[in-house]
């Protein structure tokens, strides 16, 4: 272990020494609007490596592309629930994150996650949560439970906006009902379906886009939301003299985390590892967080983050709030989810 770390440090140093010359290239394949140009520029300056960026808009797209044999990418950034699929399908290679010098900066709670317990394949990146956001100025009270969203009162009927992605909606329903995610028990799924069908007459739209627009113009009073997007929404709402709050209901929130991985087909493996180590530095992750608007896993990165983001309630989850991570369901649980969703929307 120590030997590995030492070797790693040595090779990293050797590469740093030659930073002035071009050190080849690195092709990053990341989510749209998610990669800080400032951070990339800093990386290029420090290492001399040329970075090319390509983007995708969903885990499904990334997976389909890698399954179809896409080559030429050195770093990909799947979400935690897709990470086991990439490993299982043999689409990524081992990176041994724990041996990297900067791994010591990773906060304890983000080390050895369920989806990669030995941290063999992933370097942790942004994390976030999904819950509901609401307009306290229109709602008139504090939202404390998902019950107020799934079984809404008369005043907010017809002004509820819901994600279009069945997994997230079903998981929120599970949270509210106190049930396990990826449930294979038909009775439990029946309860989810009953809840969603009863909620439907109160719903204005099923959409995973434009939540901020609907909340700010008052079309919606309560909407499912992601914390980073809600942070942007709150800022916009404040400019318009309105309130938008990302809620931490007592039942908890759904967590997600993206991880950096190296595809099996990568050509610049060493450069990809240098990048992984680079991103685990507090300053670099701080710069990256400023751009993406999401929290990161690195100790001390707060120091390099904008004050507004550092103090944002959206990324500072209360200590007593549970964050439950979803995972990719097996075929049986997935088909139950699909059936529930089709029954709700037909």
């Amino acid at each position: 272990m120590i030997l590995k770390t030492a070797l790693w440090a040595a090779s990293a140093l050797a590469l740093m020494a030659g930073a002035a010359q071009a050190e080849g290239s690195l092709n990053i394949y990341n989510w749209t609007d998610y990669t800080s140009p400032e951070m990339i520029e800093k990386f290029e300056k420090e290492t001399g490596i040329d970075v090319t960026l390509d983007t995708y808009d969903s885990n499904e797209t990334l997976l389909a592309k890698m399954q179809a044999g896409a080559t030429g990418y050195d770093i990909i950034v799947p979400s935690h629930n897709f990470i086991p699929i990439f490993i299982e399908e043999g689409l990524v290679q081992e990176v041994d994150a724990t041996a990297m010098p900067n791994f010591k900066n990773v906060k304890e709670r983000w080390r050895h996650p369920d989806w990669d317990p030995e941290q063999k394949y992933t370097v942790p990146f942004h994390w976030g949560s999904a819950s509901v956001a609401y307009r306290p100025d229109l709602y008139g009270k504090e939202l404390e439970s998902y019950g107020e969203f799934f079984e809404p009162s008369e005043e907010v009927s017809g002004r509820i906006s819901v994600f279009k992605t069945p997994e997230e909606v079903v998981n929120l329903a599970h949270l509210y009902l106190g049930q396990e995610f990826c449930n294979e028990d038909p009775a439990a799924m029946q309860r989810v379906q009953d809840l969603l069908i009863a909620q439907k007459p109160h719903v204005m739209a099923y959409s995973s886009e434009g939540m901020n627009d609907r909340l700010i113009n008052g079309d919606a009073i309560i909407s499912t939301h992601w914390n980073g997007y809600a942070y942007k929404g709150r800022t916009l709402a404040e400019e318009a003299g309105k309130e938008l709050v990302y809620a931490y209901p007592k039942e908890g929130v759904i967590g997600w985390m993206d991880g950096l991985m190296i595809p099996a087909s990568a050509e610049n493996v060493e450069n990809a590892k240098i990048f992984m180590n680079f991103i685990m530095d507090p300053e670099n992750m701080g710069i990256q967080s400023n751009y993406a608007g999401y929290g990161g896993p690195i100790e001390g990165q707060e120091e390099f983050m904008d004050e507004a983001l550092r103090n944002a309630p959206e990324i500072n989850i209360p200590n007593d709030t549970k964050m439950i991570f979803s995972f990719a369901c097996n075929a049986k649980a997935q088909s139950l989810i699909d059936r529930v969703w089709t029954n709700v929307l037909r």
Partner: peptide
């Protein structure tokens, strides 16, 4: 159906 209908009915 998605944008204007709110995706409420498939």
């Amino acid at each position: 159906p998605d944008l204007l209908g709110g995706g409420k009915k498939l």
